[in-house]
Design a protein around this nucleic acid. Structure first.
Lengths: 142, 142
DNA sequence: CAAAAGTCTACTAATTTGGTATAGTTTATA
DNA sequence: TATAAACTATACCAAATTAGTAGACTTTTG
């Protein structure tokens, strides 16, 4: 399962993407509209700002706003930022590689192969999906 | 990430599948060969027995053995048994469905669509992979 | 009946998750 | 230039989960 942190981050980002280039949005506004505890959201938005996805303006008339185009923010990056590796085994992660302690021979491990396939497919799907594509999906009548 | 419990379970199952229909194997033997803490392994094997995948024999000459053919034990079932749902969001699980608390409209949620796709693909891969196919992969020279 | 081997119940320590509280600092504007 | 709006930083904290351990008990041969 992804953490609430990542889920909230995605909700907030989609919200901000819908108001892309329309000036800063209050934390309190996002918090209310998206049902996210405000103090928790503050920490999340700060992470997204430090990652270069959002920017903020202080003082009256301030708030947070998206600085990357919605087409350039994909779900994989957001997940990695807030939850760490996407892979289900440490030995198949890309940037956080770690050997499985109990493993006898990683090279021939059949279990590793399975989770390598899952990781590749998952990352592929998550990279394809951006804030823009999510918003587009929502606008299509079901 | 999957838990150590699931990882250990898969290692133990592959071990037992290699000795399918060759009589019971000692917990202590699996524990040593696969580098799994014995007491922890005991609990895991018990879970697998209660799920109908393994059986055990008590007393001298006892141990655990696979009762399902290795082709019929897939990774998805093992993961679900020990780690619960495979999906990354509660609203896209099959048997453990739960609404996301903060969600405004599940029907049109674009984030949900993304994780639905990930779940479907993941389950597909994990179901395809059985103890038999894992062992086969390991025997192929790389 | 004794030794081997699985089973049951109950702990526990460390980590992660999902927050809250409080005290700042910065900035627009009246 | 004061002040209130708004973001920022630091420090907690409770509950749940994970990865085990300890020890007594039961069952089954030889």
């Amino acid at each position: 399962m992804i953490s609430k942190k990542t889920k909230y981050a995605l909700n907030a980002l989609v919200h901000l993407a819908k108001k892309f280039e329309q000036g800063p949005v209050l934390i309190s506004h996002i918090s209310e509209q998206e049902n996210i505890p405000q103090k928790f959201l503050e920490a999340i938005l700060l992470d997204l700002k430090n990652a270069g996805i959002l920017a903020s303006k202080k003082g009256k008339g301030g708030g947070y706003y998206l600085i990357k185009p919605p087409e350039e923010v994909n779900v994989a990056d957001v997940m990695r930022l807030l939850d760490g590796p996407i892979a289900l085994l440490p030995c198949v992660t890309y940037k956080y590689y770690e050997r499985c302690e109990e493993c006898k021979d990683e090279e021939t491990c059949g279990i590793r192969d399975v989770f390598m396939a899952v990781r590749n497919e998952t990352v592929h799907i998550l990279k394809q999906n951006t804030l823009a594509s999510i918003i587009e999906k929502e606008s299509v009548q079901k």
